[in-house]
Computed example of a mutant assay.
Amino acid sequence: MLALLAACGKPKSKFKTYNGPAVTQVVINKGDRRLYLLNNRTVLKTYKIGLGNEPIGDKQYEGDGKTPEGTYIIDRFNPRSRYHLSVGVSYPSPEDTQLAAALGRKPGGDIFIHGWGPEGRQLAPKKQDWTAGCIAVKDDEIEEIYAMVRGGTPITINP
């Protein structure tokens, strides 16, 4: 019995470690469907991404299915995300809130870079842009991102 248990080994942890150069900025180019982790001007990693289910244009209000555009910061980490792991984006900015209010709406929130999780594993192969406004990468990729970025890191989301 002990030999059988030893052969099984430890389950793979979703929490990786990273000891390379600091990520000083995250850049997302929505049109190219790419996320870049940078150390100053050097690209450390590049990932293919999925966006909100209405990928063209800037997020204007809660429920519009768009991914926001602008400069924000990484402001939180969720190790228990239903999308494997997730890294929070500081949306909405005061300007985003003001725009939504001018439209008589709420700006929404809870914008994350996250993995696929069970929902994404079903949707992503059929439809690249499937989130409600978040940025999605594969589960093994969010594990890398989660390990590499720190709170307070600037994130720029371009059209």
Rank of each mutant, 00 (worst) to 15 (best):
L2Q: 09
L4R: 11
L4K: 09
L5N: 06
A7K: 09
C8N: 08
G9P: 01
G9L: 07
G9R: 03
K10P: 13
S13R: 14
K14R: 15
K14M: 09
F15Y: 14
F15G: 04
T17R: 13
A22H: 12
T24D: 15
T24G: 08
V26M: 11
V26F: 02
I28E: 01
G31I: 04
R33N: 15
Y36E: 14
Y36T: 07
L38N: 15
N39Y: 14
N40S: 14
N40Y: 15
V43C: 11
V43I: 15
K45E: 15
T46R: 11
Y47R: 03
K48T: 14
I49H: 10
I49D: 10
G52T: 05
G52H: 04
G52Y: 04
N53K: 14
E54T: 10
P55N: 01
I56H: 13
G57V: 04
G57T: 02
D58Q: 06
K59Q: 04
Q60G: 08
Q60H: 10
Y61T: 13
E62A: 08
D64E: 02
G65L: 06
K66G: 01
T67M: 05
E69Y: 02
G70P: 07
T71L: 11
T71R: 14
Y72W: 05
Y72V: 01
Y72P: 03
I73Q: 09
I74S: 05
F77S: 07
F77P: 00
R80W: 11
S81H: 07
H84S: 08
L85W: 06
S86C: 02
V87G: 01
G88V: 01
G88A: 06
S90G: 10
P94I: 02
E95W: 06
T97E: 09
A100R: 02
A102N: 14
L103D: 08
R105F: 02
G108T: 08
G108I: 07
D110S: 08
D110I: 01
I111H: 00
W116Q: 09
W116V: 02
E119F: 04
E119D: 08
R121D: 09
R121M: 07
L123I: 00
K126L: 13
K127S: 12
D129R: 05
W130K: 11
W130L: 12
T131M: 07
T131D: 01
T131A: 05
G133V: 12
C134L: 03
A136C: 06
V137P: 01
K138D: 14
K138I: 01
D140L: 06
E141R: 04
E144C: 06
R150V: 05
G152S: 08
T153M: 11
P154M: 14
I155P: 00
T156F: 10
I157N: 04
I157L: 11
N158D: 10
P159W: 01
P159G: 14
